[in-house]
Design a protein around this nucleic acid. Structure first.
Length: 324
RNA sequence: GGGUCGGUAGCUCAGUCGGUAGAGCAUCGGACUGAAAAUCCGAGUGUCGGCAGUUCAAUUCUGCCCUGACCCA
């Protein structure tokens, strides 16, 4: 089955992108076994794995992001893991750009590509593109953040309503993240984010993707999350966080405010005890997994399997390669 | 044994000068175009500790009981 993908990639290049590069995408909520499945699929066919997880891209955040181990990374080539420091900028557009470059190269090497991760927006940006705007300008963003903090969300939204009524009509006044984004796009590009979105419409699709999702019953997923949190504790997540902080990274950095890291920092700061920390990580991870499920469930092109249906998954991928 | 303050949603608590109740968190559902493990939106929650009394009407007033914390002995 891997030969077929191999052929496809070659054709794709020879015919100068007349055919789309085939991709296997493994996307599902956290703790469902994506990493394991990806290794099982990629190893026998010499495939390479492209990470699509927004936090595994950061160096030093290993235990809490459940990165593949160094053994696993030796067995199969992984891309877009450990590519930036915790204080460096990274986002969906940067991800998509880098992932596309990498996938191009893997295809050129004539290896099958497996995109694996739980960050829905990153996968969408990779497969369907994202609006083209100037890179984020931290000065501009901080300016609007300052307005939010000093004058409040209402005032911030008032600015958007004044300058870009169409965007204001589509964004919730309390959603300051999106209000700021709309304001900065307008300021940097001179265009409404709505105009750019309408023009773009997720139509930039250079790949032929076979999306595989791993589905686990709720009660079992809850158990798996609790088990994984316990394993992270045992593996030294608290020590990992202390190490990152002692490198001088500010605890307010985006990746350190993420699931797991945030709660460990609050524990270190004495906001609550170890049991409460574990409880919160479990609860917040569960909430996150539900948000992921909401996102992925809306994507009707995902084919869902139980983790033990590896034969069915292999067959599905084989069929995909034959058809594409 | 006496006194004081409590017992209201899964949790923490607000409230009803008598007309059967609410906020935050949790729970459930949803959105998501350069922060996405982020951010935001929507929904429901209940014998208002128990039993009696007064009243057209009691979660609200009164009595007794149960129960928790604290104080005195």
């Amino acid at each position: 089955m891997c030969n077929f993908l191999f052929m496809k990639s070659k054709e794709c290049l020879n015919e100068n992108k007349v055919r789309k590069i085939p991709l296997v995408v493994i996307c599902s909520p956290t703790a469902t076994g994506k990493t394991r499945l990806a290794l099982d699929l990629a190893l026998p066919c010499g495939g390479e794995i492209v990470n699509a997880d927004s936090l595994q891209v950061y160096r030093y955040l290993d235990i809490g992001t459940a990165k593949p181990t160094s053994e696993e990374r030796q067995a199969v080539t992984h891309h877009l893991i450990d590519v930036v420091d915790p204080d460096e900028d990274f986002n969906a557009a940067v991800f998509a750009e880098q992932a596309r470059t990498i996938i191009e190269k893997i295809a050129h090497r004539q290896k099958p590509v497996f995109v694996v991760g739980g960050t829905g927006l990153y996968i969408r940006a990779l497969l369907q593109g994202i609006i083209a705007t100037p890179p984020v300008d931290e000065n501009i963003r901080n300016h609007y953040r300052g307005i939010r903090d000093r004058l409040g969300k209402e005032h911030l939204f008032g600015l958007l309503r004044e300058r870009d009524p169409e965007a204001a009509a589509r964004i919730n006044p309390h959603d300051a993240v999106r209000v700021i984004r709309a304001l900065e796009v307008l300021e940097q590009s001179g265009q409404s984010i709505v105009t750019l979105q309408k023009r773009h419409a997720f139509a930039d699709c250079p790949y032929d993707a076979c999306k595989i999702g791993l589905q686990i019953e709720r009660s079992e997923l809850k158990e798996r999350i609790a088990l994984r949190t316990a394993q992270m504790m045992e593996a030294g997540l608290v020590e990992e966080v202390r190490g990152i902080l002692s490198r001088g990274y500010d605890e307010r950095l985006k990746p350190l405010q993420s699931l797991g890291y945030k709660q460990v920092i609050e524990f270190i700061r004495g906001k609550y005890d170890r049991d409460a920390m574990v409880e919160r990580i479990n609860r917040d991870t569960w909430q996150y997994s539900k948000r992921q499920l909401t996102w992925f469930s809306a994507d009707k092109s995902i084919k869902w399997f139980a983790p033990d249906q590896s034969d069915a998954i292999r067959k599905t991928i084989e069929m995909f390669r034959r058809e594409s």
